[in-house]
Design a protein around this nucleic acid. Structure first.
Length: 280
DNA sequence: CACCAGGTGTCAG
DNA sequence: CTGACACATGGT
């Protein structure tokens, strides 16, 4: 078992996991969190000013990258505080322990298709059911867990089975994408070298993927920090806190990316997490 | 009962 | 091009 210890000032495990970028995690009862990603698992928690990640030997580099440990978040938070926008300053101070994860691209694609017109607790439940239904059963240092289902496994499910997981009308989107990936017609990994604009265009060609999901996959799967997803919460932030008057989510995205450039994705996450936390 | 949730596809004008 | 509407599901 490997153990990674780092400074916890800009790495709050609970905030990083519960800010809405990742769906497969749970608290283990002692304040620590078990996180599943693709076919791996880690246990993480904050203790005495530090953030600690425990994982299998050999997964150390994977999780250092997954939690984006090489990046200096103090500089990002400082730029948010100095942006001149009060709401962004407040949000960044509230969520300064949030890190943007480097998650599995395929898992992000399927997960954010599930997310559309849906709420986070339900998204978590649906993904959990999909994993239980067809994810490979694994045994690790923390007991049994399920891998995220491969495209082949998902393609093998009937639309009735998919709907049984709670997917509703999204079942057709999942099925079509799974089949297209399984046949080799669609390879998300090959998108890595594309510019952010080209990447988004490629993602938009998928049936069931629109602007918002494409931006989330770009940000959370490809770490494109010049992506700014606009959902119902961010639209509220834009209207209420930025006093914005533009209509159309694509224009709101353009406004934020023009304003915040490479910081867009990080700032979006601070704003989203703060807004959602303070209105519940 | 209506309305909402990390929206998108489709169709009418 | 923009705007209205349907689309499953579970929670308030």
């Amino acid at each position: 078992m490997a153990k990674i210890v780092c400074d916890g000032e800009y790495f709050n495990v609970k905030d990083t996991l519960s800010c809405g970028q990742v769906f497969r995690f749970k608290e283990d009862g002692s304040g620590a969190f078990l996180v599943c990603t693709a076919d791996r698992i880690a246990k993480c928690y904050n203790d005495n000013g530090s953030a600690i990640i425990e994982c299998e030997d050999g997964d150390e580099e994977y999780f250092k990258n997954y939690f984006d440990l090489a990046r200096d978040y103090s500089a990002i938070v400082r730029r948010a505080e100095d942006s001149g926008y009060d709401i962004l300053k407040t949000s960044a101070e509230f969520g300064k322990g949030v890190r943007i994860l480097n998650q599995d691209k395929v898992e992000m694609l399927f997960s954010f298709i599930v997310s559309q017109n849906n709420n986070i607790p339900r998204i978590k439940g649906i993904i959990e059911k999909l994993c239980a239904l067809s994810g490979e059963l694994k045994t690790g240092a923390f007991g049994e867990y399920r891998a995220f289902p491969s495209a082949k496994k998902l393609a093998a499910l009937t639309e009735e089975e998919l709907k049984g997981a709670g997917l509703g009308y999204r079942a057709a989107y999942i099925k079509r994408l799974a089949e297209s990936m399984d046949s080799g017609a669609f390879d998300v990994e090959s998108f890595s070298h594309l510019s952010t604009a080209e990447l988004k265009k490629s993602l938009l060609s998928i049936y069931g993927v629109g602007e918002k999901v494409a931006d989330c996959v770009s940000l959370f799967g490809f770490h494109r920090s010049d992506a700014f997803p606009v959902d119902t919460w961010i639209e509220k932030v834009y209207r209420e806190d930025f006093k914005g008057v533009l209509t159309g989510r694509d224009k709101i995205t353009a406004f934020f990316v023009d304003t915040f450039k490479e910081d867009s994705g990080y700032f979006q996450q601070y704003l989203f997490y703060y807004k959602r936390s303070s209105e519940k």
